[in-house]
């Protein structure tokens, strides 16, 4: 067993884990506030990827500088998506909202396929690398981690320190009570959906700086997000971050011990077991 290899892959996994965490946070925030599992999560991540691609290639902007634009687009798109696909059925049984968001999934995937085809794409970003013995740390990964942390911190600041954020938490806690207190719950639901979509799109943008991708990359990332969200507890953003790190580490470290193709088996078995044994996540209350 090679210790250096272990350290190297731990670092890789840890860094990737932050981006995964950010990705899953979008899903879990939406569930936490409105009890909707967004089956359009994957395609939204892909929109984030292609938004960076288009802006950086067509307009020649540095990919990282497009992130604020991606964030604004994300909120706007999320709010629109909420009013089109969810507002009417927000109080319906979960099957309805699952299918409504899945319909959006089909629409986005269909449109993206028409526009971009399904051929693989990649961003040409290189920020050099740091070398510590056998451990190589890529600049792109470090940057992705820093951005993921900043976005998470900003989200928490918003949720806990601003009026709108507090209103969102009130709505998540008890929608009727929040309405009695004079909070416009419709707008808060739309806004939190917008935030969830924004997080997914930013994470997509960051993933695009790390890996090549296609219009269909969303499927795998969406199921990965489910695993992370369940690990951390449905509806718990901090849990999602930890869940993301766990999955990042799991993916990188286990490959030293078992063939890489067995990792998903492990992931999904753990996923189902956690749902059964600790449905509130490994950090949540039983």
């Amino acid at each position: 067993m090679n210790l250096e290899a272990l350290i190297a892959s731990s670092f890789d996994g840890l860094m990737l884990g932050f981006v995964y965490g950010l990705m899953a946070m979008g899903l879990t925030l939406i569930f936490g506030v409105m009890k909707v599992i967004n089956l359009g999560h994957g395609p939204v991540i892909v929109i984030g990827m292609f938004a960076v691609l288009v802006m950086s290639q067509a307009l020649g902007i540095n990919p990282y500088l497009t992130l604020p634009v991606v964030a604004v687009l994300g909120i706007a798109f999320g709010v629109v998506m909420y009013f089109i696909s969810l507002h009417r059925v927000i109080n319906a049984p979960e099957l309805t909202t699952l299918l409504a968001t899945f319909a959006v999934n089909l629409i986005i995937t269909g449109l993206m396929t028409v526009i971009f085809s399904t051929s693989p794409r990649g961003l040409d970003v290189s920020l050099g690398a740091l070398q510590f013995g056998a451990v190589t740390i890529l600049g792109t990964r470090v940057t992705a981690v820093v951005i993921a942390v900043i976005v998470t911190a900003a989200l928490y600041f918003f949720l806990y320190r601003t009026r709108q954020g507090k209103s969102i938490r009130a709505v998540a806690n008890n929608r009727n009570a929040a309405e009695l207190m004079g909070i416009d719950s419709t707008w808060m639901l739309a806004l939190s959906f917008g935030l969830g979509i924004m997080l997914a799109m930013i994470s997509g943008a960051l993933l695009a700086t790390l890996f090549s991708f296609t219009v269909l990359s969303g499927g795998g990332l969406e199921t990965k997000s489910f695993v992370i969200v369940v690990l951390g507890g449905l509806g718990n953003p901090t849990g999602a971050l930890f869940g993301g790190i766990i999955i990042g580490l799991l993916e990188s470290i286990t490959t030293i011990f078992i063939p890489v193709s067995w990792v998903p088996v492990l992931e999904f078995v753990v996923f189902v077991l956690i749902l059964l044994v600790r449905p509130n996540g490994i950090f949540g209350a039983r």
Binding site: L99, A100, I107, G110, T113
Partner: peptide, 14 residues
């Protein structure tokens, strides 16, 4: 065809 299927599904659900 995916887009149309999606729009149709959404219309039914809503």
């Amino acid at each position: 065809h995916l887009v149309i299927a999606g729009v149709l599904l959404l219309a039914i659900v809503l």
